[in-house]
């Protein structure tokens, strides 16, 4: 399957579907170690992106779609995840102004997104944040691309690593973000931002595996 503009639109719709399904789970995770709004915020943000995509504007490149995601998330997601994911998609959009992505472009896109998040959030790995899902995803994607994998397989490696990375945040003690206010008590809960990252990358993979578009 080609990772073209149609794929990127499916990615958005799959993300909206996944976040809608996980809003209770994410909100519950965030209630335990944050301020309890992550599920609602991400759900609301991606519903807003869907509305924007339905405006009929012509989009021919992957980056065009990702730019819409970026600006909409920045405006509609309250809390830190708006600017963090917004910047991630903005940086990703800048490096995907092309008709379709090959294996190395997938890696470049993920690297740009991670760089946006670390620039904005000043977080590094091991601090119980979304970086703990993004960093292994980027590393796994880079390894897969180096081994000659096709673009979809690169995405698969990234999505799988993000999922493992998110789960691995459970025992961590938060040292960045709102959860760090809890100190030791933040251990034992999965980081909601890392989980939503895993969901987004899982959606990117799902959109690459089938042409089907989920019902809005």
């Amino acid at each position: 399957m080609t990772l073209d503009v149609a794929w990127s639109e499916r990615w958005v719709r799959r993300s909206a579907e996944a976040l809608s399904g996980a809003r209770v789970e994410l909100t519950e995770l965030d209630r335990q170690i944050g301020d309890g709004d992550h599920g609602e915020n991400m759900h609301r943000g991606f519903q807003a992106v869907l509305a924007k995509l339905d405006d009929g504007a012509e989009r021919t490149q992957v980056g065009h779609v990702l730019k819409v995601v970026a600006t909409t998330l920045m405006s509609s997601v309250g809390g830190a995840s708006g600017p963090l994911y917004g910047t991630a998609f903005l940086r990703a959009a800048k490096v995907t102004e092309r008709d379709d992505l090959d294996a190395s472009s997938v890696v470049v896109m993920l690297e740009a997104a991670l760089e946006g998040i670390t620039t904005r959030g000043k977080a590094t790995t091991g601090e119980k944040t979304m970086v703990d899902a993004w960093q292994p995803a980027v590393d796994a994607a880079a390894r897969a691309a180096q081994d000659g994998a096709d673009p979809v397989t690169v995405l698969q490696a990234a999505a799988a690593a993000a999922d493992v990375g998110a789960t691995a945040t459970i025992p961590l003690v938060a040292t960045k973000g709102r959860a760090s206010y809890l100190g030791e008590r933040s251990a034992g809960h999965e980081d909601p931002g890392a989980r939503s990252t895993a969901l987004l990358l899982g959606a990117a993979l799902a959109a690459a595996l089938t042409d089907e578009v989920p019902a809005a």
Binding site: T71, G82, P83, T87
Partner: peptide, 14 residues
């Protein structure tokens, strides 16, 4: 708080 800072920085990036 933190995300207000992030939003301002994002405005500067955009």
């Amino acid at each position: 708080l933190g995300s207000a800072v992030l939003t301002v920085e994002t405005a500067f990036e955009v």
